[in-house]
């Protein structure tokens, strides 16, 4: 009887030590759900969801403060993906936050630009290059199409440019195939 108690106590102690050690050693930093949500979001960083960027929005969703249908660039597909991840019913995209626009970038008319640098400060991904009172330009390959630079421009010299369809990015239209 006593032997059994001693043996089991030692066992309990050892297991407790292992558990305590691994709880410290393998502790997950931050909320893993935020990362998962953030990886679904399109990373446009446009702020249409009313948060400062995709990560803050992901944090708000994880905390249950924000709804999952506030991201227009992600579209209805994005909302559905979030619903699946969080195991909740999907919602229609909330139109108050804007509509899903086709993929685009912006371009600065270099003739009109006065070099005020306001757009540089507005760009969430540092895709605009320039300095005070000199010509400013957009690095198109880094532009996410968030359009945050457009309202701040005092001379309205930033335009939307639709991305040209390219052979490399072509996705066949299946409706055309199946209706034959």
């Amino acid at each position: 009887m006593i032997e059994a108690i001693i043996v089991f106590s030692i066992f309990a102690l050892l297991l407790g030590l292992v558990l305590g050690f691994s709880a410290k050693k393998f502790k997950v930093k931050g909320n893993p759900l935020v990362e998962q949500i953030n990886s679904i979001l399109p990373q446009t960083q446009c702020g249409q969801c009313t948060y400062a960027g995709c990560k803050p929005y992901a944090e708000a969703i994880a905390k249950g403060e924000a709804k999952i249908n506030q991201c227009p660039p992600g579209g209805q597909e994005g909302v559905d993906a979030l619903a699946e991840l969080l195991n909740v019913d999907t919602l229609p995209l909330n139109e108050e936050h804007g509509e899903t626009k086709p993929k685009h970038v912006v371009e600065i008319d270099e003739e009109l630009c006065i070099g005020c640098t306001l757009c540089i400060q507005a760009c969430p991904v540092d895709a605009i290059l320039g300095a005070s009172k000199v010509m400013t330009t957009v690095i198109a390959s880094e532009c996410t199409g968030c359009d945050l630079c457009i309202p701040v421009c005092p001379v309205d010299c930033i335009y939307l440019i639709d991305l040209k369809p390219s052979m490399d990015e072509y996705v066949p239209n299946m409706e055309k195939v199946t209706n034959v």
């Binding site: 953030n38 990373q43 990560k55 991904v125």
Partner: peptide, 11 residues
């Protein structure tokens, strides 16, 4: 998305 996320975090 990974690229713009990295750039956003860097900013």
């Amino acid at each position: 998305a990974a690229k713009s996320r990295e750039r956003y975090e860097f900013k």
